[in-house]
């Protein structure tokens, strides 16, 4: 199935690009809240695309089920963890970076 292989490669490449971009954003963005956005790309777009790309080359249905379960868990826990972190940070008084502020 050459079509599936090509689609899988495209999805994996796009996922890898999103993941690296999220990592770079985690270092480049100026404050905690903007960094949560950067980490969010790797959680949603990066993880989703990589797992979909793997799903297209599964040898058996058991592997596919496991990939879908991982996808479901990451899709549920990723945003929840981000929300819990941001909520706690805001309650703890971490200031929100505005344009022109120094990095922190």
């Amino acid at each position: 199935m050459i079509v599936l292989d090509i689609a899988s490669v495209v999805l994996l490449a796009a996922g890898a690009l999103f993941v690296v971009s999220g990592g770079v954003g985690l270092l480049r963005f100026p404050d905690f809240y903007t960094r949560v956005h950067a980490a969010g790309i790797t959680d949603s777009a990066g993880a989703g695309l990589i797992l979909l790309g793997l799903l297209l080359r599964t040898p058996s249905w058991e592997t596919g089920v496991r990939l879908l379960v991982i996808m479901l868990f990451l899709a549920l826990t990723g945003p929840t963890a981000s929300y819990v972190l941001a909520f706690a940070a805001r309650r703890d008084g971490v200031p929100i970076w505005r344009e022109g502020d120094p990095r922190r």
């Binding site: 990066g46 793997l54 972190l85």
Partner: peptide, 26 residues
Amino acid sequence: PGRYNRILAINMFGTKTVLFVAVAGF
């Protein structure tokens, strides 16, 4: 700096580990 940036980074490290383990399996 600060504890929240560190927890965020460690959380991201963990989710990437999950992906890494899955890809390594393949």
